[in-house]
């Protein structure tokens, strides 16, 4: 059955294939267009470099009026990522605009990897290390990068 959310997700998918942003990819799961798998490659010149981080994106019929739920499946060590993989990012919460599509969501998360916001921490340990002990922060992140090859 075609609903506005599903129609829009088909368009999002088409756009993602025709005009793929660098360093991210995503596609609906085989039997359900409301659940997508995505991958974000760790941005260059950041401790996340070379990592391949998997995410799931779950949409509701209210998309694009409401944001989807995005979670990292890969283990992450990042000031704005919760232990369960949930992401604390304004555009996925109170600054969501229906003009964002999957491509915009993934590129925003990608830039969150480069520029964490330690002032609104979801992982207080990561936030603290990011601010006070960058070397230890990077070591923990690198461990996640290595873990991401195995997953």
């Amino acid at each position: 059955m075609s609903t506005p959310a599903r129609r829009r997700l088909m368009r999002d998918f088409k756009r993602l294939q025709e005009d793929p942003p660098t360093g991210v990819s995503g596609a609906p799961t085989d039997n359900n267009i409301m659940i997508w798998n995505a991958v974000i490659f760790g941005p260059h010149d950041t401790p996340f470099e070379d990592g391949t981080f998997k995410l799931t994106i779950e949409f509701t019929e209210e998309y694009p009026n409401k944001p989807p739920t995005v979670r990292f499946v890969s283990k992450m060590f990042h000031p704005n990522v919760y232990a369960d993989g949930g992401i604390c990012l304004d555009i996925l919460q109170n600054r969501w605009s229906p003009t964002y599509d999957v491509s915009a969501i993934l590129t925003s998360i990608q830039s969150l990897l480069s520029d964490p916001n330690p002032n609104s921490p979801a992982n207080s340990m990561a936030a603290q290390l990011y601010k006070e002990n960058r070397r230890e922060y990077e070591k923990r992140v690198k461990a996640c990068v290595e873990q991401s090859f195995v997953d």
């Binding site: 506005p4 829009r8 368009r11 756009r15 694009p64 229906p98 003009t99 964002y100 599509d101 915009a104």
Partner: peptide, 13 residues
């Protein structure tokens, strides 16, 4: 700065 792709969708509807 509105993305053309999504803007069109809303305009058409």
């Amino acid at each position: 700065g509105f993305p053309q792709f999504t803007l069109e969708d809303f305009h058409d509807t």
